Amino acid sequence: MLTIDYDQLDVRAGHTVLDLGCGEGRHAFEAYRRGASVVAVDWGTDEVRTTQTWLGAIEAAGEAPVGASATAVRGDLLHLPVPSGSVDRVIASEVLEHIPDDATAFAEIARVLKPGGRVAVTVPRFGPEAVCWALSDDYHANEGGHIRIYRQTEVRARLAAAGLVPGASHHAHSLHAPYWWLKCAVGVDRNPAPVRAYHRLLVWDLTTRPWVTRAAERVLDPLIGKSLVVYATKPWS
């Protein structure tokens, strides 16, 4: 399940791509398949191990072009393990809402980007996220959970404060918003029949990509898309 638009980010073969807070690697995999040199970064040891395993599977299956490379490393987003001005593209998907000192994280993104480099930042959208917070403290108030809800104006302001130029934006995953509202309403640790049924719908959508759900998301994403995506560029001077 991809949140960013790789054509909008303009990921090309030969680019160096940094995937921050990679989780289990979903965005790193697509960049690798597009021929990039990918470094996936996460603080969690299990996440790094899982991502590295799947990257190896992609290589073994011949799904990555010749010349592409990928690795997963454990790292702190406040002290990124790469030199300044060395990265063509950065992906920071659903991670900044977890970081108390997000200003430093934005500054680190700007530091590692080459002039002319681009970043895609995704965070939970304010409206759907606020509903989840109102319905359930367990959804966000836990160790490593969400500590803030961004408005788009705030994301753009933080990017600009780090010296980046915010550009296009869009929303994604509208079908996921009602699922999480339902989970929060019944209890995030509970799994009654309606939750299981909705989850089966999401899995069906993910595995088959039918036209009916694709059309529904195109209509609903601007209204209730669960994720906000903002793209930005590092100026040449």
Rank of each mutant, 00 (worst) to 15 (best):
M1S: 08
M1Y: 10
Y6H: 09
Y6E: 09
Y6G: 02
L9E: 02
L9F: 07
D10E: 15
V11R: 01
G14H: 13
G14Q: 12
T16F: 15
L18C: 07
L20E: 03
L20H: 04
C22Y: 06
C22H: 09
G23H: 14
E24K: 10
F29I: 05
F29P: 01
F29D: 00
A31S: 10
A31W: 00
A31Y: 00
Y32H: 07
R34D: 02
S37Y: 09
S37Q: 08
V41H: 00
E47F: 07
R49S: 13
R49K: 12
W54Y: 14
W54P: 00
G56F: 08
I58L: 15
I58E: 14
A60L: 14
A60C: 13
A61V: 14
A64P: 12
A64R: 06
V66S: 15
V66T: 15
V66D: 15
G67S: 14
A68G: 12
S69R: 15
T71I: 10
V73D: 04
R74I: 14
G75N: 04
D76E: 12
L77E: 00
L78D: 00
S84K: 05
G85E: 03
V87S: 01
D88T: 01
I91V: 10
E94Y: 04
E97A: 06
D101P: 02
D102H: 04
D102R: 01
D102K: 01
T104P: 02
F106E: 01
A107C: 08
R111F: 11
R111T: 01
L113R: 01
G116H: 14
G116C: 14
A120Y: 05
V121G: 02
T122A: 14
V123T: 13
V123A: 11
P124Q: 10
G127M: 08
G127E: 10
G127D: 08
E129S: 07
E129Y: 13
C132A: 11
A134N: 09
L135F: 12
S136H: 13
S136A: 12
S136Q: 11
D138S: 09
Y139T: 09
Y139V: 10
A141Q: 15
N142L: 14
G145V: 15
H146P: 10
I147F: 14
R148T: 11
I149K: 08
R151D: 12
Q152T: 11
T153M: 07
R156M: 11
R158L: 15
L159W: 01
L159H: 00
L164C: 12
V165D: 05
H170V: 08
H171L: 09
H171E: 11
H173A: 08
H176D: 10
H176I: 04
H176Q: 07
A177I: 03
P178F: 04
P178I: 04
Y179I: 05
K183P: 00
C184M: 05
C184H: 05
G187A: 03
V188A: 00
A193S: 08
P194M: 05
V195I: 03
R196E: 10
R196N: 07
Y198F: 02
H199M: 03
R200V: 02
V203M: 02
W204P: 00
L206G: 06
T207V: 06
T208F: 09
P210S: 02
V212N: 03
T213L: 03
A215Q: 04
R218C: 07
L220H: 05
L220A: 10
I224C: 04
G225W: 09
L228F: 12
Y231V: 11
Y231T: 11
A232D: 10
A232P: 06
T233K: 14
T233P: 06
T233M: 13
S237G: 15
